[in-house]
Design a protein around this nucleic acid. Structure first.
Length: 581
RNA sequence: GCGCCCGUAGCUCAGCGGAUAGAGCAGGGGACUUCUAAUCCCAAGGCCGCAGGUUCGAAUCCUGCCGGGCGCACCA
């Protein structure tokens, strides 16, 4: 049960009666009560009545007694709402019996296409791919859990002019040798070597040009070599996804090349719709409202002057395919913020062409850059982009060392498992716990800290609960319901910390629902941190195992529910929990 | 030149129309014969970049500045 929604539903009819029309009661958490409603203040002008009067009139209409809520007008016209302990306890008890922790599956399932990760064939994955992959994976997990049909699309960069030089380099190296390089994940060396030859060797450059033509012309041998590059790269990317613990599989690769056969149709149809305009030898669409450097209208170039297609055409073809063939009603593009204008133009053109129309929505989930300690874009010492695997391996190594130093008794295997869950969790959480649109600074000390809004802090809270449950002999399986000696024993609030924890637990559904809409995953992270903080205070002041019967049962239930909520919430973010750490 | 994003405690970040602007770190003071102290508690720390405006009420919305980042026709 979503507490805020419950209160909102109860207040809404009363507000409607007073205002003579529908009003959002604006219920939120309060420092002065459990919740508060701010709507009376906003209504004052419209109704020409003092806000306190309005609040009072609303309370006269509102039915709240039966759910154990007491309300009072406060300050300039706030309505403060407080739940009776008994009511709160009943609501929490309801959560305990619910496998979904109060979060109902969506009543309106959608088909959501999530476009994320998108590495380039024969190119190393770098930190820029980290955010797309991690954010996209979390979005997929959350929407799937809510009951939406989710289609993962890994828009692999597998086409374009660089493939001429890459294939020629492959031929120079010999297939076996090249495959060896690529499968070892040494993509950068391969790509750089090809690039150097391309830049320095005129003959190689000419071969590369011809090879691009052969590739586009469907030459059999060239296609086979291209396929080899793609397959080897995909194999490597899958090992990175495995290390990162994201759900992308081999079936989710849908490279740019997959849309080649649709590109001519896109251009033809745009032409038929009268949207196409030739400009500088290229075929363009000029969506209104976009201007370039010189103030002139900015084109989306769907066919280049050399007759080739660029990525705008590919993106339009993909969008059409996702709406038409896949039946998508929501399109998500997890791509960096610098591409904002590009997507705005693609969406504008798609709307103009009628390929994108309500209720189908397209959203660019843009994100900021990852910065180094110096506040600039993260670069290696040599000034190159940082290899993603290197970053992940360092995270795991640091977390493993940390685990070992904190707990010297750990055997190597246990330390490795903890190191992986904590290290990878820390790096993902650092990404997901901040506002997506902002740049953020990558700082090992902070993300691996056991204090603050970090993955280890949440994982530690979870591990402590598991330890208590283990000793209590209640739950063999992490997600199993807590087996209580006296199942009917009521939840009791002997300490404020217990009550505070209960209120926090009831907030899960509201947060998940909000994130479903906004995909602001840091809201979920923030909630989990508040929950863990509330639990830590509870843990400090409310001994579980040594408590007398009734209290012990009640506390076991609260602790068990907290564990399940943390586990579920972290799972939605793609972060593992550990029974011990 | 135009457009987008961002300026909140010394540092890293929440808050994005409502009551006294919140966390963590760093610095100060406390709590381990007690379920993992990898924790918790207390105190301190702020012209919310600047200036106008809208509003009963602005960190939050609007306008203009200042500072930082990123885009702006055939590379994806």
């Amino acid at each position: 049960m979503d507490l805020e929604k419950l209160l909102s539903d109860r207040l809404a009819p009363a507000f409607a009666a007073v205002a003579g029309g529908p009003v959002d009661p604006l219920v939120r958490r309060s420092g002065r009560a459990d919740f508060q409603s701010d709507a009376a203040l906003a209504l004052a002008r419209r109704l020409g009545r003092p806000p306190r009067d309005i609040a009072g009139a609303v309370l006269a209409h509102a039915v709240l007694d039966d759910i154990g809520v007491s309300a009072e007008v406060s300050g300039p016209g706030f309505i403060n709402l407080t739940l009776a302990d008994r009511a709160l306890a009943d609501l929490v008890a309801g959560l305990a019996g619910d496998a979904r922790l109060g979060v109902p599956p969506t009543a309106t399932p959608q088909t959501v296409v999530v476009d994320y990760s998108a590495p380039n064939v024969a190119k190393e994955m770098h930190v820029g791919h980290l955010r797309s992959t991690v954010i996209g994976d979390a979005a997929v997990r959350l929407l799937t859990w809510l009951g939406h049909r989710v289609v993962r699309v890994n828009h692999l960069g597998d086409w374009g002019t660089p493939f001429g030089m890459l294939i020629e380099h492959l031929i120079d190296l010999g297939e076996a040798e090249a495959a060896q390089h690529l499968s070892m994940g040494d993509l950068d060396t391969f790509y750089r070597a090809a690039r150097v030859k391309f830049d320095e060797d005129e003959a190689f450059r000419e071969r590369s040009r011809l090879r691009v033509v052969a590739l586009q012309g469907g030459d059999e041998r060239t296609r086979r070599l291209w396929r080899l590059l793609v397959t080897q790269s995909e194999r490597y990317f899958l090992t990175v996804y495995d290390l990162l613990d994201v759900g992308l599989s081999g079936d989710d690769f849908r490279g740019e090349s997959a849309y080649n056969h649709l590109l001519a149709g896109v251009v033809d149809d745009l032409d038929r719709l009268g949207l196409l305009r030739p400009s500088g030898g290229a075929e363009c669409v000029f969506p209104p409202g976009f201007t370039g450097r010189d103030g002139a209208p900015l084109p989306l170039i769907v066919r280049k002057s050399d007759g080739g297609y660029g990525y705008p055409a590919t993106d339009l073809a993909a969008l059409r395919q996702r709406v038409g063939e896949l039946g998508a009603t929501r399109l998500l593009y997890v791509v960096g913020l610098p591409q904002r204008q590009h997507f705005a133009m693609v969406f504008a053109v798609a709307e103009a062409a009628g390929w994108l129309r309500p209720p189908v929505r397209a959203e660019h989930l843009g994100f900021g850059s990852i910065l180094g300690a110096d506040g600039r874009m993260l670069r290696s010492r040599a000034g190159e982009s940082v290899k993603l695997v290197g970053l992940l391996e360092e995270a795991v190594a640091r977390a493993t060392d940390l685990a070992r130093s904190r707990n010297p008794d750990l055997d190597a295997e246990a330390a490795a498992e903890i190191g992986r869950a904590v290290g990878i969790g820390a790096i993902k959480y650092a990404d997901l716990s901040v506002d997506r649109t902002k740049d953020y600074v990558l700082d090992w000390e902070r993300m691996l800290a056991l204090d603050g809004n970090t993955a280890p802090y949440l994982q530690y809270a979870y591990a402590r609960i598991r330890s208590v449950l283990r000793r209590a002999g209640t739950a063999a399986q992490p997600d199993a319901p807590i087996v209580l000696a006296r199942p009917d024993a009521p939840i009791v609030f002997a300490q404020p910390a217990e009550r505070a924890l209960a209120v926090e637990l009831l907030g899960f559904a509201g947060v998940v629902g909000e994130v479903e809409r906004s995909l602001e995953l840091h809201q979920l992270a923030g909630y989990l941190h508040r929950l863990a903080t509330a639990f830590s205070a509870f843990y400090e002041r409310c001994p579980v195992l040594r408590a007398s019967d009734e209290l012990r049962e009640s506390r076991l239930l609260l602790a068990g529910l907290t564990a399940r909520t943390l586990r579920q919430g972290l799972d939605l973010l793609g972060i593992r929990t550990l029974a011990r750490m």
